[in-house]
Amino acid sequence: MKKWLIALASSLMLAFAANATIEIHEFDSLEQENQFKELSHTLRCPKCQNNTIGDSNAELAQDIRQKVYEMTKEGKSKDEIVDYMIARYGNFVTYNPPLTLATSILWLGPLFVIVLGFGLIIVRSRNNRAKKVVEAETWSDEKEAKLKALLEEEKETGDKQ
Rank of each mutant, 00 (worst) to 15 (best):
Y89L: 03
Y69G: 04
V68Q: 01
I64S: 05
Y95L: 10
K78E: 15
A87Q: 15
E135A: 11
V133T: 08
Y95G: 14
S125V: 08
D83I: 09
G90P: 03
F118M: 11
A61M: 01
V68H: 02
N96V: 11
V93H: 03
E142G: 05
I64A: 03
K76S: 08
T94P: 02
M85G: 10
G75W: 00
I86Q: 07
E59L: 13
R129K: 14
I121Q: 08
P98V: 10
I105P: 00
V68E: 02
L106I: 10
V133C: 05
N91H: 15
A61N: 01
A136R: 08
E74T: 02
V113P: 05
L151I: 11
A145K: 14
L147P: 05
R88M: 12
V134G: 03
R126F: 14
L99A: 04
E144T: 13
E153T: 06
R65Q: 15
K76G: 04
G109F: 01
E152N: 14
V115T: 12
K148L: 12
K76N: 07
Q66L: 12
L106E: 08
T138I: 08
R88E: 15
L111E: 06
A145I: 13
R88Y: 07
F112I: 15
E137A: 09
V134R: 15
L151S: 08
L108Q: 03
G109E: 00
